[in-house]
C-alpha cells in the first residue's frame, strides 16, 4: 500500500509538477479554449446567415439561388472530415498565414457553421407558420416578422442542440495538433513522450476536458430554464 501510494505520487509529480509541467497543460488549455470560443462565435454567425439563406425562396415559391449556395456549402462541409478541412486550410488555402490559431478558428468556425445552419433552420421551421402569417397580416415585413417574432421563438427551440454543437466543437479542437498547435491534447501527449509515462498526463487532460464541458452544460441548462420561463405551460 505504502509503496503503491509513493509510486502514484511520484508519477503525479513527474507529470504535473517537475519542470513546471502544469504550465504546459494550462497553456494548452488556453489554446483549446481560445480556438473553441472564437470558432463557436464564428460558427453561430455563419450558421444563422446560411440557415436564412437556405430558407429563402423566390416569389414563385421555388428555391432561391442563395438557398442553392447554402445547400452546396453544407454538403461540402458535412461530406468531408474536419481534420482534412483543417489541413487544407493550413497547407493550401491559408498557406502564407503563420498564425495557426487564426487558421484553426476559421477552419472550425466554417465547419461548425454548416451544422449550426441545419440546427437553426430546423428551429425556425419548428415555429408555427401562423406566427409568421399573423405578423405579415399586420403589415410587418418579412424581415421584421423574422426578427421580432420567429427568431426569438426559434432560439428556445435550438438551444439544446446548439449546446450540443458547442460541446462537440470544443472536443474536436483536439485535432489541431495536426497543424502544430499545442492545445491541451497535444500538451498531454508531449509530456507523455517526455516522461515515458502515459497514465497521468492523458487521464489528467481527460479530466480537464470533462470539467470544462460539465461547467458549460450547467450554464446552458440555466440559460434554457430562464428562456422557458415565459412559456408557463
Amino acid at each position: 500500500m505504502q509503496t503503491w501510494f509513493e509510486n502514484v505520487s511520484k508519477k503525479f509529480v513527474m507529470a504535473f509538477v517537475e519542470g513546471d509541467r502544469w504550465k504546459l497543460y494550462l497553456d494548452g488549455l488556453g489554446v483549446t479554449l481560445e480556438i473553441a470560443f472564437f470558432a463557436a462565435v464564428l460558427g453561430l454567425v455563419i450558421g444563422t446567415v446560411v440557415a436564412l439563406m437556405k430558407l429563402s425562396v423566390k416569389k414563385n415559391g421555388k428555391k432561391s439561388i442563395w438557398s442553392r449556395i447554402a445547400g452546396v456549402y453544407i454538403d461540402i462541409i458535412r461530406g468531408t472530415p474536419s481534420v482534412l478541412q483543417l489541413l487544407i486550410m493550413w497547407f493550401i488555402v491559408m498557406k502564407s498565414c503563420k498564425n495557426g490559431v487564426l487558421v484553426a478558428v476559421l477552419s472550425f468556425g466554417i465547419n461548425s457553421g454548416a451544422y449550426v445552419a441545419e440546427i437553426v433552420r430546423a428551429g425556425i421551421l419548428a415555429v408555427d407558420k401562423g406566427q409568421t402569417e399573423a405578423g405579415r397580416s399586420l403589415g410587418l415585413s418579412k424581415a421584421q416578422t423574422m426578427i421580432y417574432i420567429v427568431i426569438p421563438q426559434a432560439i428556445k427551440n435550438v438551444l439544446p442542440p446548439i449546446g450540443n454543437e458547442f460541446i462537440v466543437l470544443l472536443k474536436e479542437t483536439a485535432i489541431v495538433g495536426y497543424v502544430s498547435l499545442t492545445d491541451l491534447t497535444r500538451a498531454a501527449n508531449q509530456i507523455t513522450s517526455r516522461t515515458y509515462e502515459a497514465f497521468m498526463p492523458l487521464i489528467g487532460a481527460a479530466v480537464i476536458y470533462f470539467t470544462i464541458i460539465k461547467i458549460l452544460t450547467i450554464l446552458l441548462d440555466k440559460l434554457e430554464r430562464r428562456l422557458r420561463k415565459s412559456d408557463n405551460r
Binding site: 402569417e133 399573423a134 403589415g139
Partner: peptide
C-alpha cells in the same frame, strides 16, 4: 403589400398571438 396589409386586419382560426410577447 406590407403597406396595404396595414389597412386590412385579419383574425385567424388559431388566434396566432405572438407566444414570445
Amino acid at each position: 403589400i406590407d403597406k396595404v396589409r396595414q389597412h386590412m386586419g385579419m383574425v385567424f382560426q388559431n388566434f396566432n398571438l405572438f407566444n414570445n410577447h
